[in-house]
Amino acid sequence: MMSEAVKQDQAGMENKIVLDELDRKIVELTQSGLPLVSRPYDDISEQLGIDPSEVISRMKRMLDSGVIRRIAAVPNHYALGYKANGMTVWDVPDDKVNELGQKVGQLVFVSHCYHRPRFLPEWPYNLFAMVHAHNRDDARLLVDKIAEVIGSDDRGHDILFSTQILKKTGLRFNQ
């Protein structure tokens, strides 16, 4: 029986690096956003008393290793008119979840796609895919498209629309 970590390593999905104190400080200082000034990384480096090139090279290392998924101007989908935020959840056979997850994760309208454990008996779903649409009817059309991809392996699914954002902040961690 392989451990989860070994399996993930073999799948090449997990590529953890060890973050040192300075990396963590950079994470802390950048997680709520880079300053909108000509040399934003200089701002960070001054606070840490290091060279700006060190901030850039450490961020590049975190990007290459996957700790940072992407560096972006992150749009607020809700403000841009994507009012329907649907968490679609699927019950698929365990031995198919990787194959199906990869297919669903590739759909352009899916913003996140995860394998999560079931929580039986209350929660039979093991595959999660987030969709964003202008309204609920459009979101349901996206659910139909996912259902086509999953085909006969769809043993049940649901869509949970959000009705209220109660909290949304960047990643925080207290040391």
Binding site: K16, V27, G33, L34, S38, R69, A73, V74, N76
Partner: peptide
């Protein structure tokens, strides 16, 4: 570019400019 991003951030169209961290990569 800086002025426009500032405005997009103030109006809420851009939530932030910066890194998106991978879930579970830290902690």
């Amino acid at each position: 570019v800086i002025d426009t991003l500032n405005r997009l951030q103030q109006t809420g169209y851009v939530s932030r400019v910066g890194a998106v961290f991978r879930a579970n990569s830290i902690g």
